[in-house]
């Protein structure tokens, strides 16, 4: 239950961080997922590059209709309302249900997304909110759609040597409707099925089903799900390979509850 030996680096610039990662260092942020994996020796990196001291790693800025959220922004900061407006309300409600407060004070939105655990909350929610992930590599910044940023279990669209610098998410009008539901037998444990749905008047409703055995499933036009939650949830889940009957049942329930939440 103690990590294997690693050396620890604290890069002072983004360029230094990229150099370290290119040389094989494992990027670390709040280490609330990596920490347990180190202790359990599921991860045995030679070097950890601690990103938390990089300039502008944490923090939120609004530019026009978009909010840029530094990858190092903690779940606790999001829970406490660091993002303004309707989007901030939605993100706060999601953040409050991530693990436990003493985990949220260190765990970060970017760390969680880049770690890409299929059951993680931002992995499920950010594709529904839309926007882009801002990657930083040797060639500078690159923007990748959040809808397909997570590509598999612990796999992302980041190229070798790239680190996640921020996410940029469109602000939402007050009229935006939101539903989010996850199945946890105990508060704070990893979800067994997560679904969310964003319905902005005048735009196509978008839903996500996550905590599957792969990347989150993005339903780009969820109008049919809104019209017939029971039938459409069954049809969507039937298209997810390899789920046992009880997981199919809770995945369907997650989609139905997400619709209910968005209608309430």
């Amino acid at each position: 239950m103690k990590p294997s030996r690693f050396s620890y680096k604290r890069p002072a610039s983004w360029d230094d961080a990229v150099k370290l990662v290119l040389a094989g260092a494992r990027p670390g942020a709040g280490t609330q997922s990596l920490g347990p994996m180190l202790n359990l020796r599921l991860a045995r990196p030679d070097t950890i590059a601690d990103l938390r001291h990089l300039p502008d790693y944490a923090g939120v800025s609004v530019r026009g209709d978009t909010v840029r959220i530094g990858a190092g922004t903690t779940h606790a900061a999001l829970e406490d309302g660091v993002v303004p407006g309707r989007l901030g309300q939605i993100m706060a409600s999601v953040a409050r249900r991530i693990a436990y407060r003493p985990v949220r004070t260190r765990g970060t939105i970017g760390g969680s997304l880049a770690h890409a655990d299929p059951a993680a909350d931002w992995v499920a929610v950010l594709p529904a909110l839309g926007g882009v992930a801002v990657a930083f590599g040797a060639a500078g910044e690159r923007r990748l759609p959040l809808a397909n940023f997570v590509t598999g279990i612990f796999e992302t669209a980041l190229a070798p040597g790239e680190v996640l610098r921020a996410v940029e998410v469109p602000m939402l009008r007050d009229a935006a409707r939101w539903g989010h539901w996850k199945f946890c037998r105990k508060i704070g444990e990893f979800s067994k099925a997560t679904a969310c749905l964003l319905d902005v008047p005048g735009a196509r409703p978008r839903a996500v089903l996550a905590a599957l055995d792969g990347p989150p499933m993005v339903i780009d036009d969820a109008a049919a799900l809104l019209a017939d939650p029971t039938g459409e949830a069954r049809r969507i889940v039937a298209g997810c390979p390899g789920l046992s009957p009880w997981r199919q049942a809770i995945a369907e329930a997650a989609l139905r509850h997400a619709v209910q939440g968005a209608r309430a």
Binding site: G28, T31, P36, L38, T105, R106
Partner: peptide, 15 residues
């Protein structure tokens, strides 16, 4: 840690 509750088992000394 720095005024906020945190787990001291998954915060490693270097960081």
């Amino acid at each position: 840690i720095d005024g906020a509750p945190a787990r001291s088992c998954i915060a490693h000394a270097g960081s």
